[in-house]
Each structure stands twice: as C-alpha cells, then as structure tokens.
Amino acid sequence: MRPRYAEPATPVTSLTGIAPVAEEWSRTFDFLPGAAQLARLHTRTRLTMFRWSGNSEGATQAAGILVGNAVAHADPGPTAEDRQVRLRLAITEDHELTIEVRDPIPQFRDFEQAPAGQERRGLWTLRRLGGELSWFLCHDRVGKTVRARMTPGPVPA
C-alpha cells in the first residue's frame, strides 16, 4: 500500500550504488516553530510502518534536525510555497534510509564547517547519529535539498 503523500518512486543513489526505492513518503511543513516536532512525529510513525531495521530513534532525530534547520535558517519568500519545507523519506531495497529536506533557499553557507560544529548541535549531532550528509540545488534552481543517508547497523564512531 502506497502512502497517501508519496511521490512517484525514483531510484536513489545509495551508499552501495543505485538501489530502487522500496518505500517512500513525503509531506510539506509550514515555516512554523513546531515544524521540527511534527517532522519527528511523522518520521517515527513512517519508519515504524515501513519496519525499517535501522536506528529509528536516530533517524527521527535527524529528520527533526534537518527540518528545524530549514525553518531556522531559511528566509521564506512571499508565496505559500516559499514558506514550506518538504520532508521525504525513502528506503531502498538495500535497506538504506534517505532523509531529504527541501527548502526555498538555494544556498548552504558553511556546509563543510557545520557538521564539524564547535557548538556541537544540529548537523554535528546528525553526523554523530550515523547520517552521511550532502546537499544539492533543486532541478529548478529555486531551492536546495539537504540529504542524510543512514544504514542499518552500528553507528560509525
């Protein structure tokens, strides 16, 4: 059964190569203070429904961090679409989880420094949870997507 908010399944480049998507779900969140909390709630629910065998609590925190960062650091524009972030969860047939958050801002200043953060929060925490981080411009160049990939198994040290 396909989730109600799912977009068409697309292959995801996984850590082990290209693997077809077995399960996916997405939804938008408004730029509101509670967006990260809602993202965590929905992520926990979906990962339970998908029966993902990885660190679901870590992945739930990761989704909240990415959505929270998008809301905190993006400057929403005048249209309703500019005031939303999209969260997408995809699990490949290789059991890798991809967490993507799209926001309307096409830049990511200090991306290389953020995960090494001296304040030890946000993306630094996400890396400690086992997430491999990347970001890219959206195909329409209107925004960006920040991606965290997580695999089942022990979290790397």
Rank of each mutant, 00 (worst) to 15 (best):
A80E: 13
G77Y: 03
A70V: 02
F111T: 05
Q84A: 08
A72L: 06
P78G: 01
W135M: 00
P76C: 12
A80Q: 14
D94P: 01
P78I: 01
D110R: 15
P76G: 12
T98A: 15
T92E: 05
P78H: 02
L87M: 10
W124H: 14
P78N: 08
E100F: 00
T125W: 12
T92G: 14
V85Q: 05
D103P: 12
D75L: 12
E81Y: 04
R83I: 05
T98L: 15
F111I: 05
E96S: 06
R109P: 12
E112Y: 09
R120M: 09
A70M: 14
P78Q: 06
L129G: 01
D75Q: 10
T92W: 00
D94E: 13
I91S: 02
Q113L: 13
A116Q: 11
R88A: 06
Q84R: 15
A90Y: 00
R109I: 06
G131S: 05
E119N: 08
V101Q: 07
H95I: 03
G122E: 07
L133W: 02
L133S: 04
A74E: 05
H73S: 06
A114F: 07
R86G: 10
Q113F: 11
G117I: 07
Q84H: 04
G117V: 09
Q107P: 02
L133D: 01
R83Q: 14
